[in-house]
Write a protein that binds this DNA or RNA. Structure first.
Lengths: 348, 348
DNA sequence: CTGAAAGCGCTTACAG
DNA sequence: CTGAAAGCGCTTACAG
């Protein structure tokens, strides 16, 4: 069952060039020859070997996605979008995940150098400009997701704006003292969300109370875990003077925070960030990142560039969209029962 | 920056064989030669091309995972386990997803034939035995996840047993009339769960009431969606004589079902199936599938076989573990308030 | 329409 | 320790 083009050629009484042409749908082959080759190929279970084609064609038809870790809802949704878009094109998807415990740049560079793929999508990896710059000479198209660098195509979300709007929304709903559940402080999106949070408060003439910026102890996945949110909310609810409402850096943490409220039988309004597929079913108000679309668009951009490397750079920055659900009732009505079953009680 | 082994050899004044040996850590190279080659390689940004190595070595160092669709929590957790285990080995992960709208077998066979990888993991794809048998002659190790075929290594979960125990648990908790929220009836795991559900009722001397077996209209992802569960639960709660409790074929549907209960401000005990990472934070009682471990184990088995193809076949069948949380209080106390905030009211 | 031959970038016995 | 050469399985000008 490991027939090669030579076996087919011999059996069919043609040259290997002809066999190759048949499999490449080259029209300069008689129908008769084609039929014969195909039937023999089928008989012998022949199929062109991917690596040999890649080498001879100098093109691998593979796109590599580099991700820091796979078990994360954000990546999953992005990946889903990538897969769906890829289905429309003649490329295979290869996934390389880099260990965040080792030098990330070296790992990324290694993947780029190996030349396994024709194009690369880097998801949620943050480098200073000079590092990205070092990657340019390899001359392989790179598209960034959740990151910006001037010389590569990119698609990202304005986290600062999202955090700003989330915080303002809470203020508009009538809440004065707003906490922030943060994730790892050295995470790039977290930094941006912190800026938006601070800016919103400042624009309202409020002093930022650093004690109100909390995060859980769990630092797995940069703190973007249910557990982290759970711990953070416990901290918040145990404060001497708890806040009136809370902006949470991610939906997954918000889920943990919601559970903490239930366990303590208390509740404060909360808004998340992401809009994961299950958030709708949690009644969670959140700032939506179009993750699936980001994945699709990134593949689209990369493939466009693969076709035409001279096309101008394209940077797309999505604005997170406010999705109001039931975890953020207006302060004026917050004392009353809500149908969500979540905000049963508002702390005073 | 597209230096090849020839460029390095020329610059270093050695043969390409020597350069190759340096990069393969062959010890029959003088330290001096090695150092020189390495420094020139670094200077020229050289790195062995993956495809060329694969072709020459007749080994690709790639494992392909074939999945029907990626945006599914089950796959995501399995994939996470695979990635983590793979990190301990010298293999790259390639992901091919097959379209369920086209002939799945042909797609799988095509992937196998292309010879891109040395080993294949097939996740949640179900074929009759003769189809799996057709794949044997290709002589590439295949490990099945969530499926069983006698001649390939496999790791799966006993869905029937899980459903049986879930149903019995509900009965033991004191509920008499138990509904089943099913997903697509032609899905293999769903079929098995249905069997377990029926068997449990029969063992209790109950007639199976077909009207109590419902599913939502949403048939995306075989019906394993929040939406499907939401719809199904609405149907259930709108019955003339609603059931006392409900076994749900998946946690993701259970999440939708929980939301339906909230929206209708009613509630019945519910048990799910999967134990997704967020289920804990929903307080959802469920039958746990060790998805992450399944992924790890599958990679482990595949790599063992890659090392020694004569080792005997290994089939692992996990038993789902009952995880009791707050959505399934005993009937005797169900009327009282629970701290979960979910079972606020039990239908009578 | 078809074939002979070079080339893709490596690895690896075989000699020395 | 090192090199010359064959080979991995294809593709693709170049001729005819």
């Amino acid at each position: 069952m490991n027939a090669t083009i030579y076996d087919i050629a011999r059996e069919a009484g043609v040259s290997i060039a002809t066999v190759s042409r048949v499999f490449n749908n080259n029209d300069r082959v008689t129908e008769k020859t084609r039929t014969k080759v195909l039937s023999i190929a089928k008989e012998l279970g022949y199929h062109p070997r991917a690596q040999a084609q890649s080498l001879a064609r100098q093109s691998t038809k593979i796109i590599t996605a580099i991700v820091p870790i796979i078990s994360n809802y954000f990546f999953m949704e992005v990946l889903a979008g990538m897969q769906d878009e890829l289905a429309n094109h003649d490329y295979d998807l290869h996934i390389s995940n880099v260990k965040t415990t080792e030098d990330i740049y070296n790992q990324v560079e290694g993947i780029v150098k190996r030349g396994m793929s024709e194009g690369i999508i880097v998801i949620s990896i943050h480098f200073p400009d000079d590092k990205w710059n070092e990657l340019k000479p390899y001359d392989i198209p790179i598209t960034l997701i959740d990151e910006y660098y001037s010389d590569f195509d990119s698609v990202s979300v304005d986290s600062t704006e999202g955090a700003y709007n989330a915080t303002r929304f809470l203020i508009q709903q009538g809440y004065g003292k707003i906490a922030l559940i943060s994730a790892a402080f050295d995470s790039e999106p977290v930094k941006e969300r912190l800026i938006g949070y601070r800016r919103a408060l400042e624009d309202e003439g409020q002093m930022v109370d650093e004690a109100l910026i909390v995060t859980g102890r769990d630092n797995d996945r940069d703190g973007f875990t249910e557990k982290n949110g759970y711990e953070a909310m416990k901290t918040i609810l145990n404060m001497e003077e708890p806040p009136d409402a809370c902006f949470c850096a991610s939906d997954i943490q918000a889920l943990g925070a919601l559970k903490a409220m239930q366990d303590m039988d208390r509740s404060i309004p909360i808004i998340g960030f992401d809009d994961l597929s299950f958030s709708k079913y949690l009644g969670l108000t959140t700032m939506r990142q179009p993750m699936y679309d980001m994945g699709k668009l990134a593949i689209d951009k990369l493939i466009q560039r693969l076709k035409n490397n001279t096309k101008e750079l394209s940077h797309t920055v999505f604005s997170p969209e406010l999705i109001v659900r039931s975890t953020t009732p207006a302060a004026s009505i917050a004392g009353k029962a809500t149908s969500s079953g979540v905000n049963k009680k508002i702390l005073t």
